[in-house]
Design a protein around this nucleic acid. Structure first.
Lengths: 200, 200
DNA sequence: CTCCCTATTGTCCTTCAGTCCAATAGCTAT
DNA sequence: ATAGCTATTGGACTGAAGGACAATAGGGAG
């Protein structure tokens, strides 16, 4: 049975927390935390950035960590997920949503609001690696195999020399492939290649 | 009461669909679809890319659309979310997960598996605009105002000449700010600047 | 056999990027 | 008055990027 613990500050509390989780504890001081984090769901209000570093530590010892915020924004969302949090939402979220987040996270899922997911999806520049599949970014399917390899290496921040070394070809060959890529994707240089490969 | 309809091909069916939704319909031909999509949850197995274009149309007339796939991958996930789908998961997902997806989507949420969300978050280069908040990417807060302006212009794909023209300064000044940015963020060139600004 | 595509490579050139020297000026704090 | 920071700018330099010429070779289709 999961124990819910809300870590917040004295002036930031929502009645919906208790409605969603009648047995939840609400604490404002860290020393009130248990020593054993098994079966613990931590709901952490990010009062200041100093709490960020705790997220990774808590997640590492088995706690489910959901971050609560006053202003949802995708950059902070990305940051907390990168730190190991399992969810991110507004501290005034509805009881129904809180319950749902709890269920999703307990089942191993990650929770982000729909708008945040869309913002991450729509405005991200994609450097995803295609693995275990022949499916590729539609824009890349017009490139040959070698062109694609070169394009992806460049999009990862590598110089022509580095790409040449990695693919065991000369720098001149890298440039030849890049030129073809630029022409096919109608971009003028490697910087714009990166942006186009992200779907913008 | 939501009606669940699985659109698939004859050889792609999971018993878990019926277990999760005993009253669901499973169809293989489009003409078996109802004319009214209100209160309809469509679970669409992506047999081929031709089905992609239907997603936007179905979502536009009120259907909730969840895409089922044989191989989950973040590029396709991004693609279907961009097309208006409300979820994306493996066609053999567990009954519990199917039920949960249904609940999340009915409540207005978006469903992506935890691994997919992490892949989108971790491997994206971020060009998100910060709106309605003074919170910025932590990495940028160590830059001065002018440095930040220059860095953002460069990250948008502009040459030094273009940035100079846009900000009404000389190219030499742009280079000076960029050099300072490179040193502060510990990157070697503008390509890596773009990647770092995305949080990688 | 011919043609086309892909992959690879060379030489040479111009432009861009980035760094290393240097400097002035305004603003703020001491 | 002085120091430090930010913003701006110049000159000179090296290396990287990208393009324009050119070429060979293998594989597949007609």
């Amino acid at each position: 049975m999961i124990q819910d613990i809300f870590i917040t500050q004295a002036n930031v509390i929502s009645p919906r927390w208790q409605q969603a989780f009648p047995h939840a504890k609400i604490i404002v001081r860290m020393d009130e935390l248990p020593s054993d984090f098994t079966d613990i769901m931590l709901w952490v209000f990010l009062a200041d950035v100093s709490l960020l570093k705790n997220i990774t530590a808590w997640a590492a010892v088995g706690a489910r960590v959901v971050v609560l915020t006053k202003i949802e924004n995708p950059i902070q969302a990305k940051q907390v997920i990168e730190l190991g949090a399992h969810g991110y939402l507004h501290y005034l979220a509805a009881e129904q949503v809180l319950t749902q987040v709890s269920q999703v996270v307990q089942l191993g899922g990650l929770w982000l609001g729909a708008d945040l997911i869309r913002q991450l999806v729509f405005s991200t520049a994609n450097t995803l690696q295609v693995t275990h599949t022949t499916q590729t970014i539609p824009v890349l399917h017009i490139l040959t195999l070698r062109e694609k390899s070169v394009a992806e290496a460049v999009a990862a921040g590598k110089t022509n020399k580095e790409v040449a070394r990695d693919l065991d070809i000369t720098e001149r060959t890298v440039k030849a492939h890049l030129s073809a890529v630029f022409e096919k994707l109608n971009v003028r240089d490697r910087l714009q290649l990166v942006l186009v490969m992200s779907g913008k």
